[in-house]
Design a protein around this nucleic acid. Structure first.
Length: 308
RNA sequence: GCCUCGGUAGCUCAGUUGGUAGAGCAGUAGACUGAAAAUCUACGUGUCGGUGGUUCAAGUCCGCCCCGAGGCA
């Protein structure tokens, strides 16, 4: 078989999972999640994880792969996913990727170098500097000296990326710009078909609001309580997930539960909009109108295109 | 019925001694190369509740009316 990836991407609450599931059944394929939060065990309701029943219909990979106190990254995700994809191709199974974490999808489908692991000590030292008066401006000025192109590209307030660019240079002696130039002449691991579901904006937002209400009914509050009882820090990657940080704030009395639920809806809508910006920029993506269509119908459409 | 305080952008509110209004949030668009459900950028005209008046000039001062909250009878 041709070693090509099929990817269902797009904003949260657009119905990716149901379509991916149906598509996997049509193709006899297995599903590989590209979701930065479904990776974590114990975070089920708030990440809209596929149910046990759905997972019994089609094998799902990279769900529940990490403990909630572990940190992930695009490159770590790539290291987890590549062996799975390789072994699926080896036995003639088509991998279908499904998820909304755009950077993780790029880490698999684009030739990203990702060659330098972050160094917490260097990072912390830059972060301390950024806190000082005029610190952000000084970091940006330093970047301008060593990598003017990156400095031009990055706003001085985008401290995370400025620090990352400085860090890459500090650790390797190669600028981020140089690394990106090297990537640009390489080829990604696998070619990919990317599909996303297109909804009228107001319909998508209404779906998000309804899904958040459903999560509360399904017991999201109890799920967050359980995680916190294990001693999970509210500062880690897992607890920065939408739905979890807000419920945690309400449980500690910082805000009312009603307010927390409203904030979850708001944050999810904002997140969906950022995902739209990300995936719209990616010219590989085919947008499929979703309103009025069942998951099976959409899966059939994709099936016919990829098996043609 | 009387008194007080409110009525300004979709929402919450600023608005100095009168010079035709601006923040946050929302919304829209964008960025994104080992933190990405994260992080960051750009975009602000609305019968200033209505109406009459004073004034060269009224969101701002005065009268009346409408709506809301509270207080006194």
């Amino acid at each position: 078989m041709k070693e090509e990836l099929i990817v269902l991407c797009g904003p949260t609450a657009s119905g990716k999972s149901a379509v991916a599931l149906a598509l996997c059944e049509l193709l006899g394929a297995e599903l590989v999640s590209c979701d930065s939060m479904q990776l974590y065990r114990g975070m089920d309701i708030g990440t809209a994880k596929p149910t046990a029943d759905e997972r019994s219909r089609v094998p799902h990979h990279l769900i529940d792969a990490l403990q909630p106190d572990e940190n992930c990254s695009a490159a770590r995700y790539r290291e987890l996913a590549l062996p799975i994809i390789r072994s699926l191709f080896e036995v003639g199974k088509q991998p279908v990727l499904c998820g909304g974490t755009g950077l993780y999808i790029d880490a698999l489908t684009k030739p990203l170098g990702f060659s330098v692991e972050g160094d917490p000590a260097i990072r912390a030292s830059f972060e301390r500097e950024a806190e000082r008066p005029e610190g952000k401006q000084r970091l940006h000025a330093r970047l301008r000296e060593i990598d003017p192109d990156s400095a031009e590209r990055l706003h001085e307030n985008d401290v995370r990326r400025v620090i990352r660019a400085l860090e890459v240079h500090a650790l390797t002696g190669v600028t981020l710009t140089e690394q990106m130039a090297r990537d640009a002449v390489r080829v990604g691991d696998y070619p990919a078909w990317l599909y996303a579901l297109d909804w009228p904006r107001d319909v998508l937002y209404a779906r998000i609001d309804a899904r958040v209400d459903a999560m509360i009914e399904q017991g999201l509050i109890g799920e967050v309580e359980n995680l916190l009882q294990t001693g999970l820090s509210r500062d880690g990657t897992a607890m920065q997930a939408i739905g979890y940080k807000e419920i945690a704030a309400a449980l500690s009395g910082e805000i009312s539960m009603k307010h927390a639920v409203d904030q979850i809806k708001q944050a999810t809508r904002n997140y969906a909009k950022r995902q739209l910006t990300w995936f719209r920029r990616d010219k590989r993506v085919t947008w499929i109108p979703a309103e009025g269509c069942s998951a099976d119908e959409i899966a059939r459409t994709i099936f016919e295109e990829v098996t043609r």
